[in-house]
């Protein structure tokens, strides 16, 4: 058992020999037991990162350690749900779960898997091809959770769920994380979707890690300030600043205590994420990595 679920160092993935880099120079550490939001705009490299961690792709460069071993070595201990929730359409719900049991001998929790499908009022005898998008998500999650994974990788898991099902399935995931200590990494481009449930953030933009760390640490490391337009913000690191008339609003990383008249406030997660995405030149911040180093 290791206290690190995923550790990447200088990880890069390029598709084809002359293709562009989907992911480059990614260094971060996800401690075990966390619920991690993998956030970034569409095409940022979130899916590539999750597929690398699931052992579906080989890295082009760098190192990736999952649960203390290689992604492929951890295959039996990882649950993965791809973005489009692929399932065999010709199988019934019950058959799909039975397949999960047969393909994961020794570590299949049939009761847990059936609980998830039963909670969605899914007829075990209905074919996967007849299910709605949300129902398919439920079956795909049941298949991934039935495996009793130590690490659960979910690529846009809630995208095609109605708010009610989203809330309920998020609850299922949180219970899983709390009861079994499962590390969960789930991607989304909707930050608000993950804000309440996640305690760790991995912000990816343009194929690189922009922010990585505990959400609380990241939020307290930043401040939203409102100052007169001619104020010099040095020595604090400015992530984003905007001047409106004589007013300067900025998101800064304080290098020390901020003057009281700067009206400093803790930003919301969404503000933090958007500020970093709008300003790709803002320096990368990975507190966890620094703490380890």
């Amino acid at each position: 058992m290791t206290d690190t679920a995923i550790a990447a160092s200088a990880l890069g993935k390029r598709f084809g020999r002359r293709g562009g880099w989907a992911l480059r120079d990614c260094t971060f550490r996800l401690p075990a037991g966390r619920v991690c939001a993998v956030v970034g705009p569409n095409g940022a490299g979130k899916s590539t990162l999750l597929a690398l961690a699931a052992g579906l792709l080989g890295a082009t460069e760098g190192e990736l350690t999952v649960l203390g071993t290689t992604p492929a070595g951890a295959r039996a201990r990882i649950g993965y749900v791809a973005q489009d929730k692929p399932l065999y359409p010709q199988l019934t719900v019950a058959e799909t779960l039975r397949m999960g049991a047969d393909l994961n001998p020794g570590h299949w929790d049939a009761a847990a898997a059936e609980r998830i499908t039963a909670a969605g009022d899914l007829d075990p005898k209905s074919r996967v091809r007849a299910l709605s998008g949300g129902q398919r998500t439920r079956v795909a999650l049941a298949l991934a959770l039935g495996k009793r994974p130590e690490l659960l990788l979910l690529d846009e898991p809630m995208a095609d769920l109605d708010p009610l099902a989203r809330h309920e399935l998020m609850g299922v995931l949180m219970v899983q994380a709390a009861q079994h200590g499962t590390t969960i990494a789930m991607s989304s481009h909707v930050v608000a979707e993950l804000e309440d449930s996640c305690d760790h953030l991995l912000l990816i933009g343009g194929g690189r890690v922009r922010l990585a760390g505990e959400i609380d640490d990241l939020l307290t490391a930043h401040a939203r300030v409102a100052v007169p337009a001619d104020t010099d913000l040095a020595p604090h690191t400015v992530v984003e600043s905007r001047t409106t008339g004589r007013q300067l609003s900025a998101l800064v990383r304080p290098a020390g205590p901020l003057p009281d008249d700067w009206h400093a406030a803790t930003p919301s997660l969404e503000e933090l994420v958007l500020a970093h995405l709008r300003n790709p030149e803002a320096p990368v911040l990975t507190p966890a990595e620094e703490a380890v180093a």
Partner: peptide
């Protein structure tokens, strides 16, 4: 094409 190959690859066999 449909991604079920990836579904199989993330079960317990290579």
């Amino acid at each position: 094409e449909s991604g079920t190959a990836r579904l199989s690859w993330t079960q317990s066999s290579t």
